[in-house]
């Protein structure tokens, strides 16, 4: 009869799989232009608002978001986990970087960048007789 073996090596191998590994993602992003503003929309599922850092420096908009899972383990199958979402955009002239607004809804971060007054479309009246 075979002895019952301690499977410490197997446990250790599992522990390695379970240990925290942060993956760096470039979040999928849509950019929209409206008459009065531009919007940048980024997929950041599972990220809380206080784990998002949006910075504007040297004409570059830097976005960083961190996701940490609460679950302690027990994974049978894993396709996503701890993550750092990072993205940077150079802003064109004509946007007002002092008025950038950020909001989070359903796992999408929306940055709203108002256009400077002179960049907004203007209706020109045609006068005639």
């Amino acid at each position: 009869m075979n002895p019952i073996e301690a499977r410490d090596a197997t446990v250790a191998a599992f522990s390695r799989v379970e240990s925290r590994q942060t993956t760096i993602y470039s979040p999928r992003t849509d950019v929209l232009e409206f008459d009065d503003r531009m919007e940048i929309k980024l997929d950041v599922p599972g990220v809380a608002a206080d784990a998002i850092d949006v910075k504007f420096e040297e004409n570059t908009l830097l976005i960083r978001a961190i996701r940490e899972e609460n679950a302690s383990g027990g994974y049978l199958h894993r396709e996503f986990g701890d993550a750092q979402f990072r993205r940077a955009f150079t802003l064109p002239k004509g946007l007002d970087p002092t008025c950038i607004e950020a909001s989070l809804r359903n796992g999408i971060l929306t940055l709203s960048l108002p256009k400077a007054e002179e960049m907004k479309p203007r209706q020109i009246k045609v006068s005639g007789r």
Binding site: K41, D43, V44, P45, G46, A71, G73, G74, Y75, L76, H77, R78, E79, F80, G81, N106, G107, I108
Partner: peptide
């Protein structure tokens, strides 16, 4: 495959999570 999913086992249940940003 979309959406990405995780499956975890707890003592009395299975917990499945899926990334569905922007999905109503």
């Amino acid at each position: 495959p979309y959406p990405p999913m995780n499956v975890r086992e707890e003592e009395d249940s299975l917990v499945v999570t899926a990334e569905v940003p922007g999905v109503d």
